[in-house]
Design a protein around this nucleic acid. Structure first.
Lengths: 337, 337
DNA sequence: TTGAAAGCGATACCAT
DNA sequence: ATGGTATCGCTTTCAA
């Protein structure tokens, strides 16, 4: 009867009518591990197929978990972020979750409204890749039984789970690499984003260098992009005392830095200049760059997120640090010239 | 009372109880353009704030549109795809929609299950960026009142709206550029993906060249990635008759191609070799490449998608072709040597 | 195994 | 302007 109207979703009731069974039978057929006779099951499946029935997860989510996970992210076109989104959506999907992406566009824009959306859609969890959510809102998410997972945020907000890479290690290791290459005049290039991760890499690198008696010229460029790396290089090599070893806190910065150093100042890498990056984006491996850098173990991080989601005890908010892995390529000499 | 239990979402009823009004009043307060007295409104808002209430969009979606849009996409880490996803999520969000991302991982993997998810969550529309959905499923989506928008798919499936760039124009223009540069031995590099877009660019380029009396050596590499461009270059320059003008159907292919041509075969670009790409990914503009290419008008495409969604007459499935815009950089000479 | 019925949370319609 | 009620589609008791 009512199926003829089309142009609207088909419900379990319609399937039940057509199959000549009760609405409950239909529900059971699609609920894993429910008891239905083979005969009923077949009838239901047949009717469902004919009608094009699909279980309404919205309605299902009314009573239990929605299986929705929100991803709050800015700067999605950045290679590293794109990879994070890809890995997360893929692994979440494999775990039976569906991902809602909330694009906060700029790091500064309020994550606030994003968190609210997350609440509106009754997401089981929110994964924050960008920005700093206000503590009060996190409180609200938690109070509503929603998990909050912060990635590379380091803000250490109570109740939220934190996941990040060991930035200190990267800072120390970068210094080690440059010193081993015999670099004497060190430089550090960072962006004006000043996120906790970036600041930490800078701090450790500079402090370790200072401890070794090597001062570091710090250059703060614009946003964490290729163009900022270029700008930084122009500034750095315009000065009298140009560095011969530079740690760029991000691959994108490093790539822009290298291009200007080479094409505008005629520097040979790694002969005249050694460069270390961070992230190991795909482009870092391209023949024109062959950048020595640190790879973020994205798979491991995504696995951890899924694990956190599936874990029965969400109360135990924790902080997990994952080690980045050094990737030696050719932008740093293996030893002094 | 019940608010103390926490660990569960707060409902309109709780807010109503606390504010001492009816559940309807709460609903009205949050429905745009409903009539509530200022006094009631204030009481509701106050209670809602205290309780941390957020309208349940899942429940709302039970009766009317869900405002969910599904994005079916593979190969998300690819710069062009990442940008598409970014633009779409951003513009959809601005239009009051929320985006669900379904990662189909590989072009070949069944878009089938993705479409089903879309149906499960009662998405108002599905935007397909990758893969070829089976016609029958599209049928089902449409029958359920869901819009289907295919981007750069060209499969021309009945009922779905199609959006794409003018690949023929790019093929023709690429040839024009290379001929003007005085190239005599033409080459074309494509991937084994053989999507409609890629095939079309190839077809038009080759046919136009043939018409002009210039044969084209076609090289089909692996997937549409940087590594495939490198492989192609190795194959192409290993042969006796190396080309002096090449159209790579994708920037990623072009970049890999350029790197090998330069670093492994010592070719100077554009002196010894001219290269044209397609997509205008960010890296194409980097100093190491300065690739002449065509830019996909992603903003316009996203606007069109939003427009399609908001349009009252979804019955009129249409096909919109948008012109890519040539981006002249330095991988092609302005004239003969 | 099966069907009837009670929610889940919100909105639209109807009276008031 | 306000409150009561039906309804959306599903899952889950509870009886039979």
């Amino acid at each position: 009867m009512s199926e003829s109207r089309s142009r609207s979703f088909v419900s379990a009731q319609m399937v039940a009518d057509r199959a000549g069974v009760s609405r409950s039978a239909v529900s059971r057929t699609f609920t894993h591990g429910a008891s239905v006779s083979e005969a009923t099951r077949r009838k239901v499946l047949e009717a469902a197929g004919a009608l094009g029935y699909h279980v309404n997860h919205l309605a299902r989510g009314l009573r239990e978990r929605s299986n929705i996970v929100c991803l709050v992210v800015a700067d999605m076109t950045t290679p590293i972020r794109a990879r994070m989104v890809e890995v997360l959506t893929r692994k979440l999907q494999a775990a039976g979750k569906i991902t809602m992406v909330i694009n906060t566009e700029t790091e500064t824009e309020s994550v606030d409204s994003a968190l609210r959306q997350t609440l509106n859609y009754r997401a089981d969890a929110t994964v924050v890749l960008s920005g700093t959510p206000p503590a009060s809102l996190i409180e609200t998410c938690l109070a509503n039984g929603q998990q909050v997972i912060l990635i590379n945020r380091d803000e250490d907000l109570r109740g939220s789970s934190n996941l990040g890479v060991d930035n200190a290690m990267a800072g120390r290791e970068a210094l080690f690499l440059l010193r081993r290459a015999g670099c004497r005049r060190l430089g550090l290039v960072t962006s004006n984003a000043r996120t906790a991760s970036l600041v930490e890499r800078e701090r450790v690198f500079v402090e370790a260098a200072r401890a070794a008696g090597l001062p570091v010229a710090v250059t703060e460029a614009g946003p964490t992009h290729y163009a900022s790396g270029r700008d930084a290089a122009r500034r750095v090599f315009g000065r009298s005392q140009a560095p011969d070893g530079v740690f760029c806190v991000t691959d994108l910065l490093a790539l822009g830095f290298m291009d200007v150093a080479r094409h505008e100042f005629g520097l040979a890498i790694p002969r005249d200049l050694c460069v270390v990056g961070f992230d190991d984006i795909e482009q870092a491996g391209w023949d024109s760059y062959r950048l020595t850098t640190f790879s973020q173990p994205l798979d491991a991080m995504a696995d951890e997120v899924v694990d956190l989601l599936l874990r029965p005890a969400p109360g135990s908010a924790q902080r997990r640090i994952i080690e980045p892995v050094p990737v030696w390529r050719h932008s740093v000499r293996p030893g002094p010239v």
